[in-house]
Design a protein around this nucleic acid. Structure first.
Length: 430
RNA sequence: GCCGCCGUAGUAUAGCCCGGUUGAGUAUGCGGGCCUGUCGAGCCCGUGACCCGGGUUCAAAUCCCGGCGGCGGCGCCA
């Protein structure tokens, strides 16, 4: 029986497909490495005298050829790089019409620019492929965790009306005779759904029209957004955040051993609860280190990074900063009685904010008041406000940046490495 | 929006500061040869490049100006 080989690569008899990434001829032996869906390459060792026919087929094939082979796992595994098969048949599906523009074998480094341009091709390289296989695992783990914990997956619109709440700049789109925008966050919609679902989540793109050019921003990025109702306080939401991230990291640690090894990443097991740092505490810590920090504004990236270093020394890779001042947050966060601080938190991983969220204001009157205080017109938020009229329970949630999480998990230097097709300040192709 | 750095073969780089000895060096790739299954195999031969435009000069990859492109920092970034 011929079976399509899956990720395991351990089927006794299989048809395996992929692309030739390396070819070496040593004496009378031709060694062909083929990359498929598997992270480790398939390796065929063909001897000129023993495997005359297959040798003749494989010998002239260029790097990049698309082939399938039928065969079984070799009893003798001599390759240090891949899994060896004894082939009984090789079929050639396509040959490259030009030499590959980048080195798939990874011998010659490519600049980030080149890597981004040819990522879809470079993913034939086990190192590049590993990042994307892990990305798949991150989303799979997130769904698994959230489903197990009673969250319902939802989809909210990505074409939205004016984002009168300010914040990140919006991309304009022409929507028939009106102007619309690409959604920068499902925030308002997922909150509205807490009037009928106890817990929801969405895995969604964020579109942000900021002209940033940094190692940690994208103009199109992905988030795991959750909202949960009937909470007793912001603590419930932080627990979801830390348990979710720990579950994801553990899932990757256990199920993606090969990929982590290929990437040279050692992922330690996470053990929540993580440290909760009050915003005022964070300010004190930074000031005691001589960093200038405002008491009424969000922390700057530099301050956030520095705090990451200080926390790392105390063995805290992940930690929360809770209780941001109302002056630095959006209108929908619940304020404490003092009206100065809010129940907004940031969730930082090695000095980078990977998620932010908090408890929301669910009381209609207070929400309208908050809008006014932020200088916004409640009439612009009518569709949203209406959801708070018919029994909106206390709720909270957060948005977790997928690329930022992957970047920190895998120690990537640039967020662009964590996404296949990059949308940044200058790129809209490929 | 402001600021800094960079742009040499398919890819990655040396040379640029201090212009001429560079008909631009190296690695990898590619073509060819050798080689007892390589592990970034090795050895030999060959192949291919100065982002664009203008200027200075006897002479420009190298200095100057402009453009285009890339990377990063600040600002900004629910």
């Amino acid at each position: 029986m011929i079976k399509r080989g899956l990720n395991t690569g351990v089927l006794a008899l299989a048809k395996l497909c992929g692309w030739i990434i390396r070819k070496a001829r040593v004496g009378k032996v031709l060694i062909v490495e083929v990359c498929g869906n598997n992270s480790k390459p398939y390796v065929l060792a063909l001897k000129e005298d023993r495997d005359r026919e297959l040798y003749a087929v494989a010998e002239p094939l260029d790097i990049g050829s698309a082939i399938c082979f039928e065969g079984e796992l070799a009893s003798e595994q001599r390759s240090k790089r891949g899994i060896e098969y004894v082939a009984t048949r090789i079929e050639v599906y396509a040959k490259p019409i030009e030499h590959l523009p980048v080195d798939i074998a990874g011998k010659v480094p490519a600049l980030l620019e080149t890597r981004i341009k040819y990522r879809w091709l470079l993913a034939r390289n086990p190192v590049e492929k590993a990042i994307f296989k892990i990305r798949t695992g991150v989303l799979k783990a997130a769904r698994e965790y959230l489903e197990k914990n009673g969250f319902v997956e939802v989809q909210t619109p990505k074409i939205v009306a004016a984002g009168a709440e300010g914040g990140a700049t919006l991309f304009k789109v022409q929507y028939f005779e009106r102007e619309a925008y690409l959604s920068q966050s499902p925030q308002l919609y997922k909150q509205m759904l807490i009037s009928s679902f106890e817990r929801v989540y969405e895995i969604t793109p964020y579109f942000r029209a900021e002209k940033f050019n940094t190692t940690r921003h994208l103009n199109e990025s992905w988030g795991i957004d959750i909202e949960q109702g009937f909470i007793n306080g912001v603590e419930d939401v932080m627990q979801t955040a830390e348990n979710l991230v720990s579950y994801i990291v553990d899932f990757v640690r256990i199920n993606y051993k090969d990929e982590l090894e290929i990437l040279g990443v050692n992922l330690p097991k996470l053990t929540p609860p993580f440290r909760r740092l009050k915003f005022t505490e964070a300010v004190d810590i930074l000031r005691s280190e001589g960093i200038e920090v405002s008491e009424v504004e969000d922390l700057s990236d530099a301050a956030e990074k520095k705090l990451g270093e200080i926390m790392a020394e105390k063995k805290h890779d992940l930690y929360f900063i809770v209780g941001f001042p109302w002056t630095s947050t959006a209108f929908y966060y619940m304020r404490e009685e003092d009206k100065v601080y809010t129940r907004k938190f940031d969730f930082d991983y090695k000095g980078l904010e990977i998620a932010s969220g908090g408890q929301r204001e669910h009381r209609y009157d207070k929400l309208v008041e908050a809008l006014r205080e932020k200088g916004l017109n409640p009439a612009d938020f009518e569709f949203y406000l209406e959801a708070f009229k018919y029994g909106m329970p206390p709720h909270g949630g957060f948005g977790l940046g997928v690329e930022r999480l992957i970047m920190k998990m895998l120690n990537l230097e640039n967020i662009r490495e964590a996404i296949m097709f990059v949308r940044d300040r200058t790129r809209i192709t490929p």
